[in-house]
Simulated scan of single mutants.
Amino acid sequence: MKETLITAAIGTNGKEAAVGGVVAVLGSSISAFLGGWDITLQLLIYAMIADYVTGVLGAIKNKNVNSEVMFWGGVRKSVILLVVGLAVMLDQLMGNDSPVFRTLALYFYIGREGISILENFGHLGIAYPAFFKQIMEQLNERGNQSGKL
Results as ranks from 00 to 15, higher is better:
residue 42 Q to Y: 08
residue 112 R to H: 12
residue 47 A to D: 05
residue 7 T to D: 07
residue 100 V to H: 12
residue 39 I to L: 08
residue 48 M to Q: 14
residue 3 E to K: 12
residue 33 F to H: 14
residue 60 I to W: 14
residue 41 L to G: 08
residue 49 I to C: 10
residue 126 I to T: 06
residue 22 V to R: 00
residue 136 M to D: 07
residue 125 G to K: 01
residue 106 L to M: 12
residue 43 L to V: 10
residue 85 G to K: 01
residue 22 V to T: 08
residue 142 R to E: 08
residue 139 L to I: 08
residue 140 N to Y: 04
residue 149 L to T: 11
residue 135 I to S: 10
residue 68 E to K: 10
residue 48 M to G: 15
residue 31 S to C: 03
residue 131 F to G: 05
residue 66 N to A: 09
residue 91 D to I: 01
residue 131 F to R: 13
residue 126 I to Q: 03
residue 132 F to R: 03
residue 34 L to F: 01
residue 52 Y to S: 05
residue 70 M to R: 12
residue 4 T to G: 03
residue 123 H to V: 00
residue 129 P to R: 02
residue 132 F to G: 04
residue 99 P to Q: 05
residue 135 I to C: 05
residue 103 T to L: 07
residue 76 R to C: 07
residue 129 P to H: 07
residue 104 L to W: 13
residue 109 Y to T: 13
residue 26 L to S: 13
residue 77 K to Q: 05
residue 30 I to V: 15
residue 80 I to D: 04
residue 45 I to T: 13
residue 58 G to H: 07
residue 113 E to A: 12
residue 24 A to F: 07
residue 51 D to V: 04
residue 13 N to Y: 12
residue 75 V to I: 13
residue 74 G to H: 09
residue 42 Q to C: 05
residue 54 T to W: 01
residue 101 F to V: 15
residue 13 N to G: 14
residue 68 E to W: 05
residue 25 V to Q: 00
residue 117 I to F: 03
residue 136 M to L: 11
residue 106 L to R: 14
residue 94 M to R: 14
residue 148 K to V: 07
residue 120 N to R: 01
residue 57 L to N: 09
residue 1 M to G: 15
residue 51 D to L: 02
residue 26 L to N: 07
residue 26 L to Q: 03
residue 126 I to F: 08
residue 95 G to T: 07
residue 16 E to H: 14
residue 95 G to E: 09
residue 116 S to T: 05
residue 19 V to A: 15
residue 95 G to I: 03
residue 139 L to M: 06
residue 138 Q to H: 05
residue 11 G to Y: 02
residue 78 S to E: 02
residue 108 F to K: 08
residue 72 W to Q: 06
residue 78 S to G: 15
residue 101 F to S: 13
residue 55 G to S: 10
residue 64 N to R: 12
residue 130 A to P: 10
residue 123 H to G: 08
residue 55 G to I: 03
residue 47 A to W: 04
residue 59 A to P: 06
residue 10 I to F: 11
residue 84 V to E: 04
residue 147 G to I: 00
residue 67 S to D: 08
residue 27 G to I: 00
residue 97 D to Y: 03
residue 62 N to Q: 07
residue 136 M to S: 09
residue 109 Y to L: 08
residue 55 G to W: 04
residue 137 E to A: 10
residue 142 R to L: 14
residue 126 I to C: 02
residue 126 I to W: 11
residue 113 E to D: 08
residue 66 N to T: 06
residue 123 H to I: 00
residue 45 I to E: 02
residue 107 Y to K: 15
residue 103 T to D: 15
residue 13 N to K: 09
residue 18 A to S: 09
residue 42 Q to G: 10
residue 77 K to Y: 08
residue 4 T to L: 06
residue 17 A to R: 00
residue 21 G to W: 00
